[in-house]
Simulated assay, not measured.
Amino acid sequence: MTERPAWNSRELTVGELSARSGVAVSALHFYEREGLIDARRTSGNQRRYRRDTLRRVALIRIAQRVGIPLADIHDALARLPEGRTPTARDWTRLSEGWRDELDQRIHRLQQLRDDFNGCIGCGCLSLERCALANPHDEYGRHGDGPRRLLES
């Protein structure tokens, strides 16, 4: 079991960061390779992370959970201030940047859910009328034949 860092410790080892964040060491190494977090190296070549890396890791995990691509997370984290712990205002600015995208995603999922409910109940099995498999008869515009199979 990893020893807990002192409450006033300025830096965390990779094991401490893993234990505190609940993220595997391998994932932390991946985040570092991708430029999402950074560490300094000791004279013994061991990683040391600033305490605010815990907040960055939490943001990464939450953003991933809602489907934000890593490239977008990277860009957002790059806008955080260097040399100081980000404030609540900094985090709010980041999350507001994703609000529209998340609202659009929620709207699309609600539409899909509603169409799916209707599809299960109707039993039409018609590619011509099915709003879920063939909205607005898109396949019909491309001519006869198995168009849907060609897309796979």
Rank of each mutant, 00 (worst) to 15 (best):
Q46E: 07
R129V: 01
E96G: 03
E128Q: 14
L132K: 03
P135S: 04
D38A: 14
N45V: 09
E101T: 14
T53G: 05
R148L: 08
S43G: 05
H74P: 05
H74Q: 11
P69V: 09
V57Y: 04
A78N: 04
L112N: 03
A63L: 15
G118M: 01
A133C: 10
T87V: 10
D72R: 15
L70F: 12
G97F: 13
A88R: 13
T92S: 15
V57C: 05
R47G: 09
V25P: 02
L102G: 02
G118Y: 00
R33A: 08
L59W: 02
N134A: 04
L94H: 13
D114I: 09
R147V: 01
S18I: 01
F30V: 09
P146Q: 14
H142N: 10
H29L: 07
L109I: 10
W91H: 10
R56H: 00
S9W: 14
H74C: 05
G35E: 00
A133I: 08
G140M: 03
G121M: 13
Y31T: 03
E138F: 00
R141P: 00
S126W: 06
C122A: 15
G118S: 03
A76N: 12
T42Y: 00
S95H: 13
I120G: 11
R89W: 10
R33S: 11
R113N: 09
S21Y: 07
E34R: 11
S21D: 06
S21L: 05
H142W: 14
Q111H: 11
Q64F: 03
S126V: 08
S21F: 05
T53F: 05
A133P: 02
P135Y: 04
L36C: 09
L59N: 00
D52Q: 15
N117I: 09
N134Q: 02
D75Q: 15
E16L: 04
G22F: 07
A131I: 01
P146E: 12
N117M: 07
A78Y: 01
A27F: 06
G22P: 06
E96H: 06
E34Y: 02
P146G: 11
G123Q: 07
R147P: 00
L77R: 00
C130E: 10
F30H: 13
Q111K: 13
E34N: 01
G140Y: 02
L28F: 01
D103G: 02
G97Y: 13
